[in-house]
Amino acid sequence: WVPDSEAPNCMNCQVKFTFTKRRHHCRACGKVFCGVCCNRKCKLQYLEKEARVCVVCYETIS
């Protein structure tokens, strides 16, 4: 899990986070992404309901 303080930009597209461009943690890899790069949901083994995942993890999992 990457702390918010260590991620000033999206770890995929590099967009800078602001008050309106929020950070989202991928529940699969723990990296920090913008809403566009972390907009998929899928079922993870260790969680009961679907969770937010990044586009890279989504392609790997599904």
Rank of each mutant, 00 (worst) to 15 (best):
M11I: 07
G30H: 03
C29A: 01
G35F: 14
C13N: 01
R22K: 05
T18E: 11
C54M: 00
C57E: 03
K16Y: 07
C54S: 01
C38Y: 02
Q45V: 07
Y58N: 05
L44G: 05
H25Q: 07
C10W: 00
A7E: 07
K41F: 15
R40Y: 13
K31Q: 12
F17S: 02
K49Y: 07
S5G: 09
I61P: 15
G35R: 11
L47A: 14
A51C: 07
T20Y: 07
S62R: 05
K41Y: 13
S62A: 08
A51H: 07
V56D: 09
P3F: 15
C38M: 04
Y46M: 14
V2M: 04
M11N: 08
D4C: 04
H25I: 04
F33L: 12
N12K: 09
P3M: 09
K43N: 12
E59V: 08
K41C: 09
K21V: 11
K43V: 11
I61F: 10
E6F: 04
R27T: 02
G30D: 05
G30R: 04
K41M: 14
F19W: 11
A28N: 12
Y58C: 07
L44T: 05
C38I: 03
G30C: 11
V36Y: 11
V15E: 12
P8V: 09
C37P: 01
A51F: 01
K31P: 02
V53R: 06
A51D: 12
P3Y: 15
C29I: 00
Q45E: 13
V53H: 07
H24D: 01
V36L: 09
P8R: 13
Y46T: 15
K43M: 14
F19K: 15
N9V: 13
L44A: 03
F17R: 00
C34I: 01
M11S: 09
F19M: 15
V2L: 04
C37E: 02
V53Q: 06
C54H: 01
E48R: 10
R22G: 05
K21I: 02
C34P: 03
Q14W: 08
E50T: 12
V15M: 08
C57S: 00
D4A: 02
N39M: 12
H24R: 05
N9E: 14
C10D: 00
C37V: 01
G35M: 13
V55Y: 09
T20D: 02
C13R: 00
V32I: 11
V56Q: 14
C57M: 01
G30P: 03
R27W: 07
D4F: 05
R40S: 14
E48I: 04
G30A: 05
L47S: 11
V2I: 09
G35C: 11
S62N: 14
G35V: 12
K41A: 15
W1S: 15
V53P: 05
S5W: 05
